[in-house]
Write a protein that binds this DNA or RNA. Structure first.
Lengths: 249, 249
DNA sequence: GGGGAGAGATGCCGC
DNA sequence: GCGGCATTTCTCCCC
């Protein structure tokens, strides 16, 4: 379908179908920020929830977009087509000026599936909670991923000397921001409990030089922990992880 | 095009064309994390740089993706098609199992345009640098957006009493992370210069309650500043912003 | 709806 | 390549 039938387009939006458009176009956007993009070949997608994406032929992210619930209409202006989108609630506006249409697809799509994802920071916290020896012998977790009154702490517990321990997990490299975050939680716990000594531990598979320096300066500790991957071994009912040794306990 | 011609597909990838596929499919991914997604209707895009995106009919973000430079091949397995993608360098792998094809487009797309974006944090820093009175009377900026030896400081300068000032800009609401960041820079400058007093200012259009409390506790200050929007008034050569008054200077 | 934090974040720039 | 940081971040969860 090389031609863009305005009636088909309007009907597609009305019926919450998905629209895919390959076209040479330019884009102007104004809302939270402002942007301008000259003419080039792009893929434009309007989803059933009225999300609009403009994709260049390279890169992971859309170069321009409008959020869910936007309103789109299309009209002729001389030889060109204008696709005008607006989201009044968010005060966002976009004009796509279309010079040439390469392809045009309309299709109702149905998808009620949700993704199951493993190896996130939350899974790291669970793993540590269920395998305290990953931190150290005698560590006794109290909570994980909980909105405590001290903030959202990944893993919270006592060490063998009954000193409180705050653990911040990062699934990738520990960086200055992660140490900032750990420090903020540790200080909040110290103040709230009136304690002098609360331990802070950063658990991640890697540590940046600046982060290491900050950790040392604050008297915090580092533990090498990798996010768990257990797609085949994962039991959705039990959520048990049996492959991590507790031999140090 | 309702049929997916395996030859057309292979040739498209070879010639760096863009492939758009509407299909009922399931997705499994393994790499930095692991994920599993049951059958549903989706749009699959392979870009000329071999980025792969899987989009559900709602939402801004791809539900699954492979990064630039991945390798994709497709083959029949019984009644179904398997699209297998891998990125050896990143140790990432994906299988898309295709049950039904709704549409299939192949097209070479060309786009050398780059977006011009206004109203970013960098523009806020430029605006303050060029209009110091936005901070206060007598403020003298030294640098902006520079990798100083104290870190990457948005705006750095002296106040009228020759006290050093570190300014952190945020284009949206100032939050605890922003105060952490400001604090880190201020402390670095203090230590490096052996100073007792270095001022910290958070410049943003909004401040969260927790951030306000942290600012006060640290003795830092808040300035109401909005990111500039000046699409029509922007002069690319001069980069001057004339609409902000300097009457306080 | 706002606040707080993660993300398979991505993208950009600098070293 | 890694480090550090912004993003029209987006998304989720909780208040």
């Amino acid at each position: 379908m090389d031609e863009l039938d305005l009636g088909v387009f309007s009907e597609a939006l009305e019926k919450s179908k998905t629209v895919i458009l390959g076209a040479n176009c330019s884009v102007k956007y104004s809302g939270r920020a402002e942007s301008s993009l000259g003419f080039g070949d792009r893929v434009v997608i309007i989803k059933s929830d009225k999300t609009l994406l403009v994709h260049q032929p390279t890169g992971s992210n859309p170069i321009n977009y409008m959020k869910e619930g936007s309103v789109h209409r299309i009209f002729k202006e001389g030889k060109q087509l204008i696709m005008r989108s607006s989201n009044i609630a968010l005060k966002e506006f976009m004009d796509i000026c279309i010079k040439k249409v390469y392809f045009f697809n309309v299709r109702g799509l149905e998808d009620n599936e949700k993704i199951q994802l493993n190896g996130t920071e939350q899974h790291m916290a669970e793993m540590i909670y269920n395998n305290p020896a990953l931190v150290e012998k005698g560590f006794r977790p109290l909570s994980m991923e909980e909105h405590t009154k001290f903030g959202f702490i990944d893993v919270f517990g006592y060490d063998r000397e009954n000193t409180l321990v705050v653990i911040e997990c990062k699934r990738y490299s520990g960086d200055p921001k992660a140490v900032d975050q750990l420090k903020r939680y540790v200080e909040k716990v110290r103040e709230a409990k009136g304690l002098v000594k609360v331990r802070g531990i950063l658990a991640c598979p890697k540590l940046s030089p600046a982060a290491r320096q900050m950790l040392e300066k604050e008297g915090f500790e580092y533990r090498f922990v990798k996010p768990p991957k257990y797609l085949e071994k994962y039991d959705a009912d039990q959520k048990k992880i049996g492959e991590y040794s507790d031999s140090d306990a």
